[in-house]
């Protein structure tokens, strides 16, 4: 069963401005779903829609198989969220911020200490939230999202403002929560590198459209498909002719030839043939696209 499923979610801020076009998210239970896209792609709008912060216009939103609109309160009991910047009451302490939600969620008071310890803020005492650094606010916001032991965590760019160490800590915390407590996590980001080591599934969005959705391995297999070979020789025309003899298509860019990687044996044969035909071979290299390049290729299509 999908933990979260949206069908053809479409949203317009004005008649001319369609910000989301037929978004169909599929988040499997127990997964860590990375929702990727550049700034302004529609990530936050999607997350605000699925949490009911924006009025739905077209499409369906289902959590745990139930329509969100008709089961809003029951569904929200199982969801923890952090949307964009931290939402904290600056005049209250960390513990007070959690305390007011602890009353609403009716979870044990002990839980406040537990989550503060979990996010590394056990000793903030009487310090008001407004005096916290951005990183501390971000951690406290994650504590707020975790307070009631939700089964689904929706985090919109939760590592914004965190230093590299903080990012690693949050990543480890999310992996731990996912593996030990089985919490499903949806995490949005505009940087694949940031969440590559964390997610099990990926959804890529750009200009309000889903470009890719599936397990991270599927995205990685695209990486294999996109390996290419670059050749630089003294006679490109002759080289193209020789390569064409192997039924391989080439493209020319910056005085170099690009061809798809076929096999090591073909590369060796080609090199031999070029030398035998008195063509000087200056460069022959294999170019392996990393996930970031694939992501950029996807969003720049």
């Amino acid at each position: 069963m999908y933990c979260l499923e949206t069908n053809n979610l479409t949203h317009r801020f004005t008649k001319e401005n369609t910000v989301l076009k037929n978004i169909s998210l599929r988040v499997t239970e127990g997964s860590i779903y990375g929702f990727l896209g550049p700034n302004g792609a529609g990530k936050t709008t999607t997350l605000r829609l699925i949490l009911g912060l924006l009025k739905k216009q077209e499409g369906d939103i289902l959590f745990f198989g139930k329509p969100f609109e008709r089961n809003r309160v029951a569904i929200l009991k199982n969801i923890g969220s952090l949307i964009e910047s931290p939402s904290l009451y600056g005049h209250l302490t960390a513990s007070e911020n959690l305390s007011l939600l602890q009353k609403i969620y009716r979870c044990p008071r002990q839980r406040i200490k537990e989550v503060l310890k979990l996010v590394g803020l056990p000793h903030t005492g009487n310090k008001k939230a407004s005096q916290f650094s951005l990183g501390m606010k971000q951690r406290l916001s994650i504590a707020v999202a975790l307070l009631h032991n939700p089964s689904l965590l929706i985090l919109d760019e939760p590592t914004n403002g965190l230093d590299p160490n903080g990012m690693i800590e949050i990543r480890e915390l999310l992996i731990k929560l996912n593996q030990q407590s089985g919490i499903t996590v949806i995490i949005s980001s505009h940087m694949l590198a940031e969440i590559e080591k964390l997610v099990t599934h990926v959804g890529v969005i750009n200009n309000g459209q889903m470009l890719f959705q599936g397990p991270l391995n599927e995205l990685k297999s695209k990486q294999q498909e996109s390996v290419s070979v670059v050749l630089e020789t003294s006679d490109l025309e002759k080289t193209v002719h020789i390569i064409a003899g192997h039924d391989i298509k080439t493209t020319q860019e910056d005085g170099k030839l690009h061809m798809p990687f076929v096999s090591k044996k073909v590369i060796a044969t080609l090199a031999q043939q070029l030398v035998n035909n008195n063509i000087e071979l200056y460069e022959i290299s294999v170019v392996k696209n990393d996930l970031e390049t694939i992501f950029i290729n996807l969003i720049s299509k």
């Binding site: 605000r48 949490l51 939402s87």
Partner: peptide, 18 residues
């Protein structure tokens, strides 16, 4: 103003309350 000032309407509207 407390909710606007602390950017917390979004937090308040995602708690399980009508």
């Amino acid at each position: 103003q407390i909710e606007y000032k602390n950017n917390s309407w979004k937090q308040l509207h995602t708690v399980p309350l009508n």
